[in-house]
């Protein structure tokens, strides 16, 4: 390569700097700096005038030590975990099933199914939240009508309004919307498996189930792991759906409160409690730590053990 010299060896490679500068500057200023600054702010506290002073771990002690703070933090963390588990147990298996079916050879209407099933994923979470709010609303009664048709009308409850069902209902709405993502990523991975391999297995006497279980699934495990960590990051960063359907208070009685909504309330305040940027930064840093633990677990615990096979 002609331009491999750097710095002191040859002429300073100005063009490399010019190519990199705009992206690195904007990215650093509006992404990296705020992330680091948020972590810094979490060690400060603000007085009534807004002036901030160093406070050490005081904010963390408050959130994890003060009974009220602690209760709401643990509640949000627990709810977020439930939110994530519903995605892992429903969204990703359903996505895998759909991808496996879509990748069957000689399937008619393949691209039609693919396009239509992926459609809700493209829409705004806020819009989807409202759509389901209407559909599940006892006022409109459309869910009751549908349940009546299948003879299950007695099952109907205002799922979004009840403390014990609201969170799972919202999780399932999110699953419904985003099932297209695991589906399409796993589908793409399945397409990369050469036909020779499945044919060789067929000759070896494998049926469709064997081929899926022994050949395809092991080969797409890295993709499934990646889909899982992406789900984890997205879930612990979620906010829009809860905010749109339940508002910042994540009712009823905080039963749908997750990290994102807790962060928003802490930052901007609600009802009687005043907003606090430094406490908000603390919650954000804790969210960052949760995500970091997940990512590190993925990078060192999962990804290293999974081989990516050259195909």
């Amino acid at each position: 390569m002609k331009t491999t010299q750097t710095g002191w060896l040859g002429r300073f490679p100005w063009h490399i700097a010019v190519f990199l500068a705009p992206a690195v500057l904007i990215y650093t200023l509006f992404m990296i700096y705020p992330l680091l600054d948020s972590i810094r702010l979490s060690f400060f506290t603000a007085d009534d005038s807004g002036a901030i002073s160093y406070a050490g771990f005081a904010n963390y002690v408050t959130i994890l030590g003060d009974p009220e703070w602690r209760a709401s933090f643990l509640n949000a963390l627990y709810n977020n975990l439930v939110f994530f588990l519903v995605h892992m147990l429903v969204q990703n298996p359903v996505g895998l099933l759909l991808a496996a079916l879509l990748s069957l050879p000689r399937l008619r209407l393949r691209s039609t199914y693919r396009t239509l099933i992926f459609m809700p994923t493209m829409l705004s979470v806020v819009i989807i939240g409202f759509v389901w709010q209407l559909i599940l609303s006892p006022l409109w009664g459309i869910s009751e009508t549908l349940l009546y048709y299948v003879g299950l009308v007695d099952w109907f409850e205002p799922w979004l309004g009840q403390e014990n069902t609201a969170l799972v209902t919202l999780s399932l709405i999110s699953v419904w919307q985003f099932v297209g993502i695991p589906m399409i990523l796993i589908y793409a991975a399945l397409l990369l498996i050469p036909e020779d391999l499945t044919e060789a297995a067929e000759i070896d006497g494998a049926n469709h189930w064997h081929i899926f279980w022994h050949i395809k699934l092991p080969l797409i495990l890295p993709t499934i792991a990646m889909v899982s960590i992406l789900t984890f990051i997205a879930n612990f960063n979620a906010f829009d759906l809860i905010y749109a359907v339940k508002g910042a208070l994540a009712g009823p009685n905080f039963s749908t409160d997750i990290m994102g909504t807790l962060f928003y309330r802490t930052f901007f305040g609600f009802q009687l409690q005043l907003g606090s940027p430094t406490m908000g930064a603390t919650v954000a840093t804790l969210m960052f730590l949760v995500i970091l633990v997940g990512v590190l677990f993925y990078l060192f615990g999962v990804q290293r053990r999974l081989r990516r096979y050259a195909m």
Partner: peptide, 11 residues
Amino acid sequence: MVFQSYALYPH
């Protein structure tokens, strides 16, 4: 059958 690409299961 022996395939041109060998079709060995990589995993």
